[in-house]
Amino acid sequence: MPIAFLQRLQTLTGPAVNKIVPTSSGPDAIVAEQLLQRVITGLPELLGAAVVDVESGQALATYTTSREFNVGKVLDFNAEVVRQQRRAMQALGLPADEQLSEILITLSNQLHLLWLLADGQRFLYTVVDCRDTNLGIARSVIRSCELPD
């Protein structure tokens, strides 16, 4: 039986671990949860993931495997990366049909993938350990997980 006080107490110690956490209610949050569930199924060694609104930088749902790895702390920064890349594309004068699809951030042991969803208003942020998952597998799983609008 879930006890609200104990659930709230757990959130004070850090993000929920191995659990999808919606940050709002409604159809967008439900779709975000479904998307994250599909990603987790396809990438069981996933370190963290979130579905994020590009304009606000706010998560619709998050997932992490470790309290020390709090994806919520970086979402606004990643949203700004997407917004800046779109501005850079405009500055280059690229045709309007040229759309940003993904941004890859490669660290020594981690791959951070920002995959723009079909609506262009949200992105899927995923983090994998590159010792467990290669980029090709991560991209393939992420592309196959997006739900139709």
Rank of each mutant, 00 (worst) to 15 (best):
G120Y: 15
T11Y: 09
V127R: 04
L94G: 02
S56I: 08
R139A: 01
A118Y: 12
V74S: 12
V31P: 00
A49I: 04
F69N: 11
S101I: 01
R122C: 08
L124A: 06
I103K: 03
P95Q: 06
A29C: 12
T106F: 03
L94N: 00
T41N: 08
L6Q: 11
V71N: 03
T126Q: 04
N18Q: 12
L117N: 02
Q99Y: 13
S108H: 12
T65V: 07
P15R: 01
L114I: 13
A79L: 14
L111R: 00
D129N: 15
E98C: 04
M89V: 01
S140L: 02
D76M: 14
N109D: 15
D129P: 07
V54M: 09
G48M: 09
V74N: 10
P27S: 13
F123Q: 04
T126M: 08
A61Q: 07
S101H: 08
K73M: 13
T126P: 03
L60F: 06
D76E: 14
F77H: 11
S144T: 12
G26A: 10
V39R: 05
E102H: 03
T133S: 09
L9V: 07
L75W: 11
Q84D: 11
H112I: 07
S108L: 09
Y63G: 05
Q34N: 14
A91E: 15
L43Y: 00
L92P: 07
L60V: 00
I137Q: 02
S108Y: 09
V52F: 11
R143G: 02
Q90G: 03
D129H: 11
S108K: 12
L35R: 09
V17Q: 05
T23M: 14
Q90Y: 06
P95K: 04
L92A: 11
W115P: 01
I103C: 04
T11C: 02
I20M: 04
N18K: 11
I103W: 00
L107V: 10
V127I: 15
T133P: 01
E45W: 03
V141I: 15
G48L: 04
Q10H: 07
G72F: 10
S140F: 04
I142G: 06
V71T: 06
A59T: 02
Q110K: 15
L104S: 03
E80A: 15
I40T: 05
P27A: 13
R38L: 00
P44I: 00
Q85S: 08
V51S: 01
L60P: 01
L94V: 00
Q121N: 15
Q58T: 06
L9I: 03
T41Y: 02
L124H: 06
E68F: 10
S25R: 13
L116C: 05
R86Y: 09
C130Y: 08
G136F: 00
V71P: 05
T11A: 07
L36A: 01
V82T: 14
G14L: 01
L47C: 12
G120C: 13
E98G: 00
A91S: 13
E33Q: 15
Q34D: 11
L107D: 12
D132F: 04
R86W: 08
R8F: 10
T64I: 09
D119S: 15
L107M: 14
S25P: 04
V128D: 06
D97M: 09
V127A: 05
I105W: 05
S108R: 12
S101D: 07
G120S: 13
K19I: 10
L114N: 02
T65D: 02
Q37C: 04
A32V: 02
V31Y: 12
R83W: 13
P95G: 00
G93D: 04
